[in-house]
Design a protein around this nucleic acid. Structure first.
Lengths: 199, 199
DNA sequence: GTCTATACGACGATAGAC
DNA sequence: GTCTATCGTCGTATAGAC
């Protein structure tokens, strides 16, 4: 490959990433429907025509981001599963990672976009399918059940526990985007939802 | 007032309410920006022209709903404050009300709209002001502090505790809209975030 | 009070110049 | 590879008929 082409590829990759980052900002703040291509272009500091040079449509940008976000959070869950320790310890580690990721504000955008994708009818069906395929609840519930068997997690419907857990995580992410400096809870406090009392 | 006018007023009020209910459905599912007047009209079973006979604009409908929602949730908090019992008992009663309201699916729509209103840049500034005026966090934090003084609530930043509490409530509401049959947690489980352990 | 028809503006997407 | 100019569509809001 001639040197010219290599340079072009680098430019292409850089621009692509630049657009995705800008899009994450805009989508997170305004939602899929209200986000305008011109907003994204302005945020990225380039013309709106160029956006279409790199992505087929607004939908394609959104879809790309959702996939990325989904992979990210699945990664954390998988890693938690493979760690040493009791189920509760794995959950604790996972919670620390998520709180850290939300608190730092780095990946909270992707988090928010996932929530939008799963809650708004305004997003395309294909995207929703992507999310159903890899549902955090399904992957995390077994961990809860294991913890219950070992007696370190309270006896309650495991699905209910998992849903509650993610509701809290999602709620925190939503809060964070709106109130940048809002205090994040100690991960231990969250884990206390699960832990048996008085033992 | 002639009888004719009275009847007309009744019709007007009924239609107005009908439109607001339909709008709540559509806004909750699609968000302020993505919601189309034609969607609302269809949901309410009348022409889109008639919607404009009753409301000046889409924004006015949204604003009306947000105010209504804000008053609703403030009501619950105020009522909780005026009840007999310890701060923790008040919190527990409040939590029961909220879980009940979310679980029954009746007022969850208004709840969701409040969340959208506070998190999306797509909503008008006036609406956001309304919400800042009557922030649940500000009203609830004193209750938490009182509970800490009485020693029934764990020692941690009260703002942080309050934020976490509402994050969970909001997260549950969001979940509910997307997954109608999702199991709601026992209010006691939520209160356990606050309660001191081993006492 | 309710409807249909239409004006008008905004935005997604494309074409073509540089 | 990047930009500006433009098209076509869709949705808000209005006007006017019934």
């Amino acid at each position: 490959m001639p040197r010219q082409d290599e340079q072009n590829k680098q430019i292409r990759d850089a621009r692509s990433e630049q657009i995705l980052q800008a899009a994450a900002q805009v989508f997170a703040r305004r939602g899929m429907a209200a986000a305008k291509i011109s907003d994204i272009a302005k945020e990225a500091g380039l013309s709106h025509g160029l956006v279409y040079h790199y992505f087929k449509s607004k939908e394609e940008i959104f879809t790309t981001l959702v996939k990325k976000a989904s992979e990210n959070s699945m990664d954390i869950i998988q890693q938690a599963n493979q760690r040493e320790g009791t189920p509760l310890q794995k959950l604790q580690w996972m919670t620390e990672q998520m709180i850290e990721s939300i608190g730092s504000g780095e990946e909270v955008l992707l988090f928010l976009i996932m929530i939008q994708a799963s809650t708004s009818d305004a997003v395309p069906e294909e995207v929703k399918e992507t999310l159903k395929m890899s549902s955090p609840v399904e992957v995390t519930a077994p961990l809860i059940i294991a913890g219950q068997r070992e007696g370190e997690i309270i006896q309650a419907d495991p699905i209910q526990l998992t849903v509650t857990y993610y509701a809290l995580i999602q709620g925190l992410a939503i809060n964070k985007i709106q109130w940048q400096e809002c205090p994040m809870p100690d991960p231990m406090m969250i884990i206390n939802i699960f832990r048996k009392r008085g033992e």
